[in-house]
């Protein structure tokens, strides 16, 4: 009796699985130890930090509300324009790359790999760095900002799209092929209706992200509310900094509420 109980002792993972888990934990612990030990932090700055933060908070109060209508509101409107344009441009560039990256819609391995590389590369270069390039190309202003966010969002949009396309139902595509549809017709009549829900959810989700992203573009001169933030910080007007931060906070919450409501009703 005891022998069979012993034999049937239930172990959740195979030894290989447990070894792999242990290895991951070990590597993570070692990396953390290395990072903690070697990172260059000036201890005085660390001890001083709470005092500095309290001091800054005190200067941020009271908020300079009078600054809102002349400066912050136009900047906010510009930020919204940048986010909307960038989302549309990002969708226009990201969707074709997404289709090229999907193995079933584009059955050419090399094309897939190149498209996947484009997706990773555009995502790895952050919005600020894209903005540096476009400011140098087109001069400071919202155009550079919109292009920067659009190029950065190619990666995300394309990745979500290629995943949506790869999950598409084979049957309807085969039916189209049997009817003699060309590749373009297969994409338009077969894949597109199936990824339409993905399209809407990606568009909304990315718009939400882009509003947040466009708030930082002003730091490198690419327009939007970031310009107002940067100006206030450079002039050490902390009561205006807190106004800008508060405005960003409200806008982000509003956008998120709108997106959740649309999602609930439409998708």
């Amino acid at each position: 009796m005891t022998a069979t109980a012993e034999l049937k002792r239930w172990i959740r993972f195979t030894p290989a699985q447990r070894l792999a888990r242990f290895a991951v934990f070990l590597v993570m612990a070692a990396l953390m130890g290395w990072a903690l030990k070697t990172i260059e932090i000036i201890p005085e700055f660390l001890y001083d930090a709470p005092e500095q933060v309290v001091d800054m908070g005190r200067r941020m109060w009271p908020i300079d509300w009078a600054h809102f209508w002349p400066v912050v509101w136009p900047a906010l409107v510009e930020t919204m324009h940048i986010a909307a344009i960038a989302t549309i441009l990002g969708l226009m560039m990201g969707i074709p790359v997404g289709f090229l990256a999907a193995k079933n819609a584009t059955p050419f391995l090399w094309v897939n790999l190149v498209a996947k590389f484009i997706l990773v590369a555009t995502r790895s270069i952050s919005t600020l760095i894209w903005a540096l390039f476009f400011v140098a190309m087109f001069g400071p202003g919202p155009l550079a900002g919109a292009l920067a966010i659009a190029f950065h969002s190619i990666g995300f949009i394309g990745k979500m799209f290629s995943e949506g396309v790869e999950e598409a139902n084979r049957g309807s595509i085969e039916a189209l092929q049997a009817a003699g549809a060309t590749r373009m017709q297969q994409i338009l009549m077969g894949y597109w209706p199936m990824v339409l829900p993905t399209f809407w959810s990606v568009a909304l989700f990315r718009w939400d992200i882009n509003v947040r992203e466009s708030a930082v573009l002003g730091l490198v001169g690419a327009g939007g509310i970031g310009m107002a933030l940067n100006a206030a910080i450079d002039l050490i007007q902390w009561d205006r900094v807190s106004l800008v931060l508060f405005a960003i906070f409200i806008v982000v919450i509003l956008i998120e509420t709108i997106v959740t409501q649309i999602r609930k009703r439409v998708i």
């Binding site: 990172i39 260059e40 932090i41 000036i42 700055f45 660390l46 001083d48 930090a49 500095q52 933060v53 800054m56 600020l128 947040r212 992203e213 708030a215 930082v216 730091l219 970031g226 933030l229 910080i233 900094v241 931060l245 960003i248 906070f249 982000v252 919450i253």
Partner: peptide, 27 residues
Amino acid sequence: IFCRSFHPVIVAIIAVKAVGFGALAGI
């Protein structure tokens, strides 16, 4: 919600002003 609404770069600017240049502000 508060932590989510601000882009890391905005927090980084404020942190740089608060604790000075360097990795601490990034963290």
